[in-house]
Design a protein around this nucleic acid. Structure first.
Lengths: 264, 264
DNA sequence: CGTGCTGTTGAGGACGATCAATGACGGTGG
DNA sequence: CCACCGTCATTGATCGTCCTCAACAGCACG
């Protein structure tokens, strides 16, 4: 649908390859309620591509002064912090189309020790804050769309908080897996393979690696996760959602009709 | 400083009593980088006061269609959700000046079962979404300020996540207390009394009430919390911050100079 | 003067952490 | 091609933090 429209219409003004590469961003903006060919083009033309970033590399450091917004275009990344104890706490996973450092656009001064790092090979798009300023100047709805992206991240944080607070390890891991599946499916990835290590999972779920491993084995016995130990692959989504008591509403953007009416 | 300016300048256009009541909101907007007499007046004139809300009452329900933004003007409230297990998970505490339902402005459709409820007697200000739309239309920086408020809430959520994930019960409770102290002090409340019950604390910290009680007793023995069992009063802030390994940066807004330069 | 809410105390048990060692795989360089 | 190394996964054993259940005490309320 929209991919076709945009893909076709942008092909004239941009190399076809680029149009394809930026699809995740277009999809994201669309889902946040920022539509329109002219509107999108205004922002998308400003995106610079950063060469591919290998697994394990830092994408956004804690120290450098922010001057640009980072968009993940391919791969998986995470936002994390190394706590006093030396442990890594993962706050968020990022998938293609996600903005990695909106916080630094809104707060120009570095305010925390958080870092974004590639968990698989990634490709990255860059938008200068100055260009973003201008795009927002022209299309007010863009600020609202990005604000909404922040809100979605908040919503995920709240859900994760509830998990850590009140759910068992089995539920926690299942819930985390469900969320990843859901988000990946939302951007067109139907496979049940989740490209994270057990260590990543543990650092996000607030469990020890050993216990995470045991929980995964339980999930295998329950027939929800593939027996192959090298990759985490969910084979029975329904049962997993059942175990996790997963309710996807917190991830599901409403139709946004109300918003349109108000600002249009 | 700014209170004087505004208090004086608004006195002409609004009942003196009202000007005082709205001070927390003015202070908050100021701290978010939204200054200027004209700018503030444009929004503040639209605030309607809702009669005082008694302790225990619902401020923002999960069901009703949102049409207005709620600002806490006095008292303490919390955002919470009742989980499948029947337990209450508190996601956020709100103090005077805080916006209670920005998420509903950004997402007009209800998207989660979260509720805002008064933990003490509160007084509430209301701004119609329509009026807010217009104010944002006129002063673009207002949207950015509110976006920043969302970001601050996010930042608190991340910190809380780290607490639940990796810190001991003693650290968790201490950290939570430190945060409340810090936020209260930021709005001019210097007292060490924290108007929450042990139940509130437990539901926010992800601990059982029984264990929370025991932790508080430990804190009393350590001389950080007053021996009076009816109210929670911190008597030794430094030692508490020490126990919690509290680093207030995640709560501290930077000077915002960068932002000003870009949009002014 | 009961009734309800909050705080307190004790006992027992479960869930998950920690420590330690081993296995499996992939990549690298000789 | 093989030896080596680093990363990730796995297993067993032990320990401790925190949960659960249950009962009771104090205070505020009508």
């Amino acid at each position: 649908m929209w991919q076709v429209n945009l893909g076709a219409s942008m092909a004239g003004s941009m190399k076809p390859a680029d149009a394809g590469v930026l699809n995740p961003l277009l999809r994201k903006l669309n889902s946040l309620g920022f539509h329109g060919e002219a509107e999108l083009r205004c922002l998308v033309h400003k995106v610079k591509l950063r060469g591919s970033t290998p697994k394990g590399e830092e994408i956004v450091g804690a120290d450098d002064t922010p001057r640009r917004l980072t968009v993940l275009l391919a791969g998986v990344a995470c936002l994390y912090e190394t706590l006093e104890s030396g442990e890594r706490q993962i706050y968020a996973f990022y998938y293609p189309g996600d903005f990695c450092d909106l916080h630094r656009y809104v707060w120009p001064e570095p305010v925390a020790e958080t870092t974004v790092r590639a968990l698989t090979d990634c490709s990255i798009g860059i938008i200068e804050h100055r260009d973003l300023d201008r795009a927002i100047e022209r299309h007010r709805k863009l600020a609202l769309a990005l604000w909404r992206a922040t809100m979605l991240e908040s919503s995920i944080l709240r859900e994760r908080l509830a998990s850590l607070s009140r759910r068992s390890a089995l539920e926690r891991v299942s819930h985390l897996l469900c969320e990843q599946l859901h988000r990946r499916r939302a951007i067109g990835i139907e496979s049940g393979v989740i490209p994270l290590t057990q260590i990543d999972l543990a650092d996000a779920a607030g469990l020890s690696v050993v216990h995470t491993n045991r929980v995964l084995q339980d999930l295998r016995k329950l027939g929800t996760v593939s027996a192959n130990s090298r990759t985490i692959e969910v084979v029975n989504w329904e049962r997993l959602a059942d175990i996790a008591k997963f309710d996807n509403r917190y991830l599901t953007l409403p139709a946004l009709s109300g918003w349109e009416i108000r600002t249009e």
